[in-house]
Amino acid sequence: MLILTCPNCGVTAEETEFHAGGEAHLKRFGPGSSEEEFEGYLFMRSNPKGVHFERWRHAYGCGKWFHVARDTTTLEVFGSYSAQTTEPPQDILDTIEDRRPGWSPAERPA
């Protein structure tokens, strides 16, 4: 069971109050993109064993979206941050580096 903190309303609750929204920090490829790019945007998702960045929505609370960094194997939550960003903030990356010293930046979202 994940315990998440919504950065929009400050509420800390267990995961049933939230709804998972899939991988975070995807770059949208729309009109004008190649078919490969569009396919990648629509269907291709990383499925890492370890550090992962996700979108979540506080569905039963304030209704707002936010981002969460967590570990997919240990379920450790490294932190949550605003949805209005295209990459994880430095303090979240520092926490991950602190907790997973071997973590490769290659795992960072493109």
């Binding site: 309303c9 509420v11 609750a13 049933t16 109050e17 039963y60 609370g61 304030c62």
Partner: peptide, 10 residues
């Protein structure tokens, strides 16, 4: 003041 769920409903 808290918004949450009661069993299956908001």
């Amino acid at each position: 003041f808290r918004r949450t769920r009661l069993a299956q409903v908001p």
